[in-house]
Simulated scan of single mutants.
Amino acid sequence: MTPFESLGLKHDGRTLWVLDQTQLPDAEVWLDGSAPEDMIALIKRLAVRGAPLIGVAAAASLATCAARGASAAEYAAACAALRAARPTAVNLMWAMDRMKAATDPGAEAQAIFEEDVRLCEGMAQHGAALIQEGEGILTHCNTGGLATAGIGTALGVIRRAHEQGKRIHVFADETRPLLQGGRLTAWELSKLGIPSTLITDSMAALLLRDGKVQRVLVGSDRVAANGDFANKVGTYGLAVQARFHGVPFHPVAPFSTVDLACPTGAAIPIEERDPAEVRGHGRLRWAPEGMAAWNPSFDVTPVELVTSLVLDRGVYSAGQLRSGVLARVCG
């Protein structure tokens, strides 16, 4: 493979390194993700995360495995195991299906990386055109360079609007699980110099009520054929609040996140994580030991609550999505 580098991933031609996102914002630690079994562990514990980056990282790990002399059977087994590492983000399956069919794994992984960079640029271009001078923008989870090979999805749009001098202010939800907005989005916003404020997820409605937010931008881990989409848990509630307060609500995603085989959001599998993340554990436990807890990583927002979907290929209204436009532009 040709060496490459992004905010959370780099390949020096021999070894694949990933930035351990569980240790941000306090420490920037790079881990070896060359072996597929190691990459699977990193993906499962969210050291590597973000729907596009998961697909890119898994492809790069598989290509590195092949370059190190894996047999055809070992390659196929690794591909299948990586594909199953997380159930909701469809980019992982999309990338592994490409790698399974590839005659040159290194070239295919490189193509997947470079394509994601281009897709991020397309989303940024289309999405930034929606943002007006001086807007307050609310975002959820992490959707920047840590989640992609390029500048990001929703946060890439925000970054481009900031670079255009639109004097925006970003409100970042802290976001469960693992407070990815507080640890990761706040870290990226600080590095980019974008004026921003961190809030808890339960504060969003107050900002919307008080007119401090003029637009909501979120990412997506899977978009169904009708425009319903899955994103980090809390997105559905945010969409309901935005609709009530008359604030535009936009998911932002590359075409690789669209799953045309999934007719509606009801068919999207939702990953559930360890209840200890809700209760806390050890000295950081804040709920009674043994208390029942529910911890889905994602929820599904119906297309009826979407103002428009920002893709790398354009911006599509809820009406267009319900009419089947995704089959035409992503098929």
Rank of each mutant, 00 (worst) to 15 (best):
E188K: 00
V90E: 12
A107K: 11
I131M: 03
R159Y: 10
E272Q: 11
S317V: 06
Y316R: 01
A81S: 13
E133S: 06
S61E: 06
A239C: 04
R313Q: 13
Y236A: 12
D221W: 03
L31K: 15
L238C: 08
I43Q: 05
R83V: 00
L155Q: 12
A78Y: 00
A57W: 04
M39W: 10
V216L: 14
T15F: 10
V278Q: 01
R167F: 12
N142M: 01
D173K: 11
L305D: 02
R86K: 09
A276F: 03
Q125A: 15
S297M: 04
C262K: 13
P248M: 09
E289Y: 08
R49P: 02
G106A: 07
A109C: 05
R279P: 01
E289K: 14
R222N: 04
R183C: 15
V247P: 07
G237C: 02
G319T: 15
A60Q: 10
I137F: 09
A70Y: 02
G314P: 07
M39L: 04
T15R: 13
C79S: 04
S220I: 08
A80D: 15
A76H: 13
S71T: 14
A41Q: 13
D104E: 15
A67L: 05
A80G: 10
N91M: 06
M1T: 15
K44E: 11
L207E: 11
C262Y: 06
M99H: 14
S71W: 00
S317A: 08
P25Q: 02
A318S: 14
P87L: 10
L146Y: 02
K166E: 06
R176K: 03
A293Y: 08
G246Y: 00
Q23S: 06
L238Y: 09
A89P: 01
I131L: 10
A66R: 14
A63I: 00
L198C: 06
W17Y: 09
R328L: 13
A59S: 04
A107R: 08
T235Y: 11
L82S: 00
G33K: 06
L46N: 03
A124Y: 09
P195W: 04
G211F: 09
M123V: 04
V325G: 03
P251D: 14
A35D: 15
A205H: 11
H162I: 06
A76D: 14
C79I: 11
V90M: 07
G282K: 13
D173H: 13
I151N: 14
T264I: 08
R118P: 01
A124K: 07
A80R: 07
T139H: 04
W17E: 01
H281V: 12
Y75D: 01
V18C: 13
A58R: 08
